[in-house]
Amino acid sequence: MTDWTTTPVGPHILRGALELERTARGLLPHRLPGRARRQCPDPYLAMVESQPSGVRLAFRTRATAVELDVLPTKVVYRDAPTPPDGLYELVVDGRLTARAIAAGGNVRTVDMMAGSAVTEPGPVTTVRFTGLAAGEKDIEIWLPQAEITELVALRTDAPVSEAADHGRRVWLHHGSSISHGSRDSGPTGTWPAVAARAGGVELINLGLGGNALLDPFTARAMRDTPADLISIKIGINLVNTDLMRLRAFGPAVHGFLDTLREGHPSAPLLVVSPILCPVQEDTPGPLAPEFEGGTLRFRATGDPAERAAGRLTLGVIRDELARITAARAAEDPNLHYLDGRALYGEPDLAELPLPDGLHPDAAGHRRIGDRFAEHAFGERGPFASK
């Protein structure tokens, strides 16, 4: 019979979350603080910010078996095939060692056409990792990036202590669903996780699916979060929601950057424009979902001729971001710009097509992450170690 040690889950063993909420079952990690959430009672934002992309448990132990009780909330889309369960990934001493799923939990059914959702409650379930090598080791359990995950209990067959402090720099990143991560990439396979591993940094991923919208509350949350390196990947959500016009976009970018600089006056700050996405390169939004033979794809519904009236496209946004960052860099030498097509461009589209016309697959995430790491963390990159 296994002699289990139960360790309370809390900030001492949890990384990548900005706030923890006590629930009836356990703890719910949030990637935006309560003040930000209260300023935007949008149910979709509430869902994606509580999906723990980049959030992981980190501890040191001699344990050979680990159990984690969780209450996941899985997301399915009406009229679309049921996606696979999210992955819990075990990393031991920096190496991906095992994967598991959490059967059961809540199921949230989203009707994209109607803009509604219904949640059916389910039971707490247990994720198990066994057969670990004996001896002291650093363990991370990365949570599924697309499943809300309430943490109920952590059990091990040996005591747990805080993970070793490796003195890594903290990288704070904000972006859209591409930064949030596709479901098939796995939590350590999202492009920010790939880049963070290559760069040897601690990741805080504020990739918020559908919600990289230059929201002031997101800028303030980033301003108030300790970080050594900062990046924002802006553009695609502003186009596919048709949220603003060119007149508002420029000042909003300036305001977002001004707020970041209030809390991080000299940290390396990298602004990244959108990767290639043909459906919105020259056609304004809004974007409309379509199901063809059970496959979800997206279609731009705007008129390209309306760019003259200030409607945004990815091309317009790239030009404006390049102009703004160049002007600000004259007084802010730690501000940098990267055209997202350097991460994923025309040759990549031919080799690794976007499955739904909008999001990269797992292989696409690896390529984007590798290229970002090369550009940002390379010897002459803006995030290079000094």
Rank of each mutant, 00 (worst) to 15 (best):
C40S: 10
C40T: 12
C40I: 06
C40K: 12
C40F: 12
P41L: 09
P41V: 09
P41C: 12
P41I: 09
D42I: 03
D42C: 10
D42K: 04
P43R: 11
P43G: 05
P43C: 08
P43W: 15
Y44G: 12
Y44K: 08
Y44I: 12
Y44L: 07
L45M: 08
L45K: 04
L45F: 01
L45A: 04
L45N: 01
L45G: 00
A46W: 14
A46H: 13
A46R: 11
A46V: 12
A46C: 09
M47S: 10
M47Y: 10
M47T: 10
M47L: 15
V48R: 05
V48W: 04
V48C: 06
V48F: 07
V48H: 07
E49F: 02
E49C: 10
E49Y: 05
S50L: 10
S50P: 08
S50C: 09
S50N: 15
Q51A: 11
Q51T: 09
P52K: 04
P52A: 13
P52M: 13
P52L: 11
P52V: 11
S53C: 09
S53Q: 01
S53L: 05
G54K: 04
V55A: 00
V55Y: 05
V55D: 01
R56M: 11
R56W: 03
L57F: 04
L57Q: 01
L57C: 00
L57P: 01
L57M: 05
L57N: 02
A58H: 13
A58M: 06
F59Y: 03
F59G: 00
F59R: 06
R60W: 07
R60M: 07
T61I: 02
T61H: 02
T61N: 02
R62L: 11
R62F: 10
A63M: 02
A63I: 00
A63H: 01
T64I: 08
T64P: 07
T64L: 11
A65C: 10
A65T: 15
V66E: 05
V66R: 00
V66L: 14
V66P: 01
E67T: 06
E67F: 09
E67D: 15
E67L: 08
L68C: 07
L68I: 08
L68F: 13
L68N: 01
D69M: 10
D69C: 06
D69K: 08
V70F: 06
V70C: 06
V70Q: 03
V70L: 05
V70R: 00
L71K: 02
L71S: 02
P72L: 05
P72W: 01
T73G: 04
T73V: 07
T73L: 07
T73C: 08
T73W: 03
T73S: 07
K74C: 06
K74Y: 12
V75L: 11
V75Y: 04
V75W: 03
V75G: 00
V76S: 14
V76W: 13
V76M: 12
V76A: 13
V76Y: 13
V76G: 14
Y77W: 13
Y77H: 13
Y77K: 13
Y77I: 10
Y77A: 11
R78W: 13
R78V: 13
D79A: 15
A80Y: 11
